[in-house]
Amino acid sequence: MSFLTIEHLEKSFGANRVVKDFNLGIEKGEFVSLLGPSGCGKTTVLRMVAGFETPSTGRIAIGGKDVVDLRPNQRNIGMVFQSYALFPNLTVADNIGFGLKVAGKPRAERTARVQEMLKLIGLSELGDRYPFQLSGGQQQRVALARALAPSPHVLLLDEPLSALDAKVRVSLRNEIRAIQKKLGITTIFVTHDQEEALSMSDRIVVMHGGIAEQVGTPFEVYNRPATKFVANFVGMLNTLSAEVIDAATGRVRIGGTEATLRRPLPEGKVMLAARPEMISLGLQPGRDTVLDGTITSVDFFGSVIRLRARVDGSDLAFDMFNTTEEPPPAPGTDVRLSLLASDLLLIGEN
């Protein structure tokens, strides 16, 4: 039995079913992301766990105890909002101590805990400031400390990084994960940013249209997407149309070459997909399929260079590492690309 269990959770607003038969078990101390585009129901699931929305049907249990009938203030949950939601009339210290104060904890205990939390987020000096005097990243760290101060059973993070600058976002991402690991707190993280989900989570739930399309580790979700939606939504994809020659062995014709996927495929034409990193420039050991193309663009990102090549009328993006010896091929260069056919993902039939 998982620490936090969600069973057959449904939510409708009027005739609109926004969450459909959602099931999830989260272990104690696990960090699980709900990933999906806006309107996929991820926030609604989170708000039902928090108690802001009442499920139409279904069960939510924390530590074996059904919480559906409990009000938010009885659930012992910590939550961080996208908009920080710090109380503007209270100092940083008073914000962090808010949960302890309403719980009737004595002042000495509160002060000690607030200091501890301020230290945890590295803002020990700023306890007397008001929220408006802090940067976005600092405010969100205070919000995290405020959520953690009453030692909740579960931490809910509702797109906490979306309102921040790109740089702050990355550093705070690591910080949140580090604090979460240190405290060992069970966490649900809602995001539409696949990079955040992939880099932070123990497991990811990819949601679409109110349904959990796939639940798995970042590695599984990225490399073995269960559905076409997951394949498209998580990570970047090159699509290749192919004609199946032998359905049983998975032999296909892609443009002028043939390749064997070594797994059964449907008859007729299929749509295959390859991640940029599956494709390499030149012939490489272990890559069994070769495609010929012409470089169309080169984007230099630093350590990684992203190139695009036109192959059989479609553009394929692929990456190479930067080396000091050799500049990347210029646009217009004819190149030979290689990949391992069994890596190819099947994303559609037609």
């Binding site: 009000r71 659930r75 719980a103 959520a147």
Partner: peptide, 15 residues
């Protein structure tokens, strides 16, 4: 008054 303030207070245990 932001909805999140009320929600944040409520989830922190406030009535």
């Amino acid at each position: 008054l932001k909805r999140e303030w009320r929600e944040a207070a409520s989830v922190l245990g406030a009535t």
